[in-house]
């Protein structure tokens, strides 16, 4: 701001007109106000405050209170809500489920996306068709996807069990069994997210210029050496972007749990966000739900930090 030429000087001394004078277009008083940097960032600050900062602070406040939604009674609870979370046997189960779920959906989501991206990299009629087919799950609502997968994974009539039997494997109970319920929702999540990730990977691959591959050919680089030494390093910004967004997405998964298993059987497929929802809106323990949210916020922040620390140095921009 201070580097700007003062408006007065722009109304030059010789009296001739100069180009682009802000002072001429706006009243002087308003112009002066607009030169204040805080005024300029105010719209963004106000929006973020109302829709992000205030809810977070409110959640922190409520997490230290007993708040009965039905009677409207409020009282200070200190750390009781936090204590009850750590005492709750469900909390550890949910945390474990979420970590397993996030780890596998992110890892396999990325690996499959990379594989499909490399296979569909060339633009031909067939690959374009397959690309759009693979992308379809991303634009279909989770409700329809869930209904379809509930049919596919049906223990009696589902096609998945039919195929398993055909190849001599044991049919599974899928969502009905505590052993496989988490696996079921992971399969559906990976399947739904794959199209989007693959699309991003393809875009990333297409931004690698062809002459780099030609140079690699002349350097006698084989298929695998080119993949691991050229393609993946040059794709690292794309993969890092997908890692961060899909990690956050996996930790905050709600709809897949709610629609497919409701967290059951016996909490075997319950994830943190769904669990918070159950505490707050089914058990009406708003204080405890808020305390869990605050802890969850800290967890996600920590995991993102870890991602940045481990991977950002390996990313080549």
């Amino acid at each position: 701001m201070q580097e700007n030429i003062p408006a007065k000087q722009l109304h030059d001394k010789k009296g001739g007109p100069t180009l682009m004078k802000p002072g001429r277009m706006l009243p002087r008083a308003l112009n002066k106000v607009l030169q204040n940097p805080y005024v300029l960032i105010a719209p963004a600050v106000i929006l973020v405050s109302i829709f992000s900062l205030y809810p977070i602070l409110f959640a922190v406040k409520v997490s230290f209170m007993n708040w009965d939604v039905v009677t409207g009674e409020q009282s200070f609870a200190g750390f009781n809500n936090y204590r009850s979370i750590f005492a709750d046997p469900d909390s550890m189960q949910v945390l474990k489920n979420t970590l397993i779920y996030a780890f596998f959906t992110v890892c396999f989501g990325l690996i499959f996306a990379l594989m499909i991206g490399i296979l569909l990299q060339k633009s031909t009629f067939l690959t374009n068709l397959v690309q759009s087919v693979i992308f379809t799950p991303h634009i279909v609502s989770f409700v329809s996807v869930t209904i379809m997968w509930m049919w596919l994974l049906d223990p009696q009539m589902g096609i998945v069990n039919y195929v398993l039997k055909m190849f001599g494997f044991e049919p599974q109970l899928w969502m009905m069994s505590p052993k496989t319920s988490l696996l079921s929702i992971m399969i559906v999540s990976i399947w739904k997210g794959l199209g989007f990730s693959a699309m991003i990977v393809i875009a990333g691959l297409q931004s690698i210029p062809s002459y780099i591959y030609e140079a690699a050919k002349l350097d006698r680089s084989g298929r695998w050496s080119t993949l691991f030494r050229i393609t993946i390093p040059l794709l690292s910004p794309t993969l890092f972007f997908l890692l961060i967004t899909s990690t956050i997405g996996a930790f905050s998964s709600f709809d897949v749990v709610n629609l497919m298993t409701g967290g059951g059987p016996q909490g075997s497929s319950n994830l943190i966000v769904h669990w918070i929802y159950q505490i707050g809106f089914l058990k009406f323990q708003l204080g405890k739900a808020m305390a869990a949210s605050v802890l969850f916020l800290i967890l996600i922040g920590f995991i993102s930090l870890l991602n940045f620390m481990f991977f950002s140095k390996k990313v080549h921009y």
């Binding site: 002459y211 780099i212 140079a215 690699a216 002349l218 050229i230």
Partner: peptide, 14 residues
């Protein structure tokens, strides 16, 4: 048994 220099160099940027 050939080596090539490309117009845009084709250096591996990473």
């Amino acid at each position: 048994d050939v080596a090539m220099v490309f117009q845009n160099y084709a250096i591996y940027p990473h």
